[in-house]
């Protein structure tokens, strides 16, 4: 049996103090809980828009969608959203047919995602 295969690695980077979550790999049955836990960890300091660089995500299955939805439900009462950018065509198609384009914001670029997050109004110090 194959072991120690990493399906998804998740790191954070910061742009002007804004956290950008960078998952790389497949967002599926075995890895979705890690993704969800990472996003929840990012919310430990309180609700905020969560920016996710999806450029490294190969595909998203229903378990991945389930984790995205759980986090989106947590964010919704405070008016915050998940903001994705760098989404490949396959992932965009899955988000579209599953109705998730109403649940997450998909930005065309990192710059646009930062605008969605309100970063453009923030004074970087």
């Amino acid at each position: 049996m194959t072991t120690e295969t990493t399906l998804l690695t998740i790191t954070d980077r910061f742009e002007d103090g804004i956290r950008i979550i960078c998952p790389v790999g497949k967002l599926e049955t075995l890895s979705a809980k890690d993704f969800e836990a990472h996003l929840n960890g990012a919310l430990a300091d309180g609700p905020a828009h969560l920016l996710v660089d999806m450029g490294g995500v190969d595909y998203v299955t229903s378990f991945g969608l389930r984790s995205i939805l759980i986090v989106a439900k947590k964010l919704a009462p405070s008016g915050h959203k998940l903001v994705f950018f760098g989404v490949n065509a396959s992932v965009l198609e899955v988000l579209r047919i599953s109705g998730f384009l109403k649940i997450v914001t998909v930005a065309d670029s990192e710059a646009e995602a930062l605008v969605h997050s309100g970063a453009s109004k923030a004074n970087a110090t």
Binding site: L69, K102, I103
Partner: peptide, 16 residues
């Protein structure tokens, strides 16, 4: 047109 708060979890796999 369900928003995140209204959306139910599950049943998506075979639909996809």
């Amino acid at each position: 047109t369900a928003s995140a708060e209204q959306r139910e979890i599950g049943g998506l796999g075979l639909f996809l």
